[in-house]
């Protein structure tokens, strides 16, 4: 364990942990977006419910879920503590600032974007994950599937708005985070870095767009 203690103590080690956990969350997002996009078959949620059922009962998926939560908690705890720590490194503030002249606003706002995502995540887990794992609400409700739960939640415009804001935060968080993770792991190469950055930009736009389309489409009744 001593070999890995630098992941929690040194400035570079802590960034390495952010990068590794961040990339594992990126992999999760891809699976999550893929499964949920099954609602766009517009078959009353049949394909989607089938996929959700598989994810809920496959032992490999359930085991990875533990790893996912571990990574998520590490990413959040480390991110909050790093942000707080970094904010203490300049006690006397600048009188004039010109941040936009040398960097992008979202690269300087990862703590705030991440906190917005955390607030969204708590609401999101309460809507779907807690309901499907720990209570029998879905079974007892009229429709009884996760798809019916989506229809129910997104009938109300408030969650739809919160979900869209969550997706925008996710897009900007990924726009910096995806390529930044590779830099933190020491991967920066004149030939490969432009490819990583392009894939990162594509991922950061497409995945949140697919996610945001779900509550909007359900609220407007395009998906039934």
């Amino acid at each position: 364990m001593k070999l890995l203690s630098f992941l929690f103590t040194s400035s570079i080690g802590r960034k390495v942990l952010m990068a590794v956990t961040g990339l594992s969350l990126v992999a999760f997002l891809l699976v999550h977006a893929g499964i949920n996009a099954c609602i766009f078959f517009n078959d009353g949620g049949e394909t989607f419910n089938h996929a959700a059922e598989f994810m809920a009962h496959n032992w490999l998926i359930r085991a990875s879920e533990i790893g996912l939560f571990l990574g998520l908690i590490l990413h959040i705890a480390q991110g909050l503590s790093l942000t707080a720590n970094n904010n203490q490194k300049r006690n006397a503030k600048y009188g004039a600032s010109a941040g936009n002249a040398n960097s992008k606003w979202y690269s300087r706002s990862m703590g705030i974007l991440g906190s917005l995502l955390l607030i969204f995540l708590v609401m999101h887990l309460k809507h779907f994950w807690v309901v499907s794992r720990f209570t029998n609400e879905i079974q007892e409700a009229a429709g009884s599937t996760l798809f019916d739960e989506m229809v129910f939640v997104f009938a109300d415009p408030i969650p739809v708005i919160v979900y869209v804001i969550g997706c925008i935060s996710l897009a900007y968080h990924l726009l910096h985070g995806f390529q930044s993770a590779f830099q933190s792991l020491g991967i920066n190469h004149p030939a490969y870095s432009p490819i990583i950055k392009s894939i990162g930009a594509g991922f950061s736009i497409i995945v949140p767009l697919v996610f945001a389309a779900m509550p909007i489409a359900m609220h407007l009744g395009w998906i039934k």
């Binding site: 400035s11 570079i12 802590r14 960034k15 790093l82 720590n85 970094n86 490194k89 300049r90 941040g99 002249a101 040398n102 960097s103 992008k104 690269s107 300087r108 990862m110 910096h176 390529q179 930044s180 830099q183 933190s184």
Partner: peptide
């Protein structure tokens, strides 16, 4: 007492 890098790129730009 220097902070950690968040890869904003401001250093290289300046």
């Amino acid at each position: 007492g220097f902070g950690a890098c968040t890869n904003t790129g401001a250093c290289a730009a300046e």
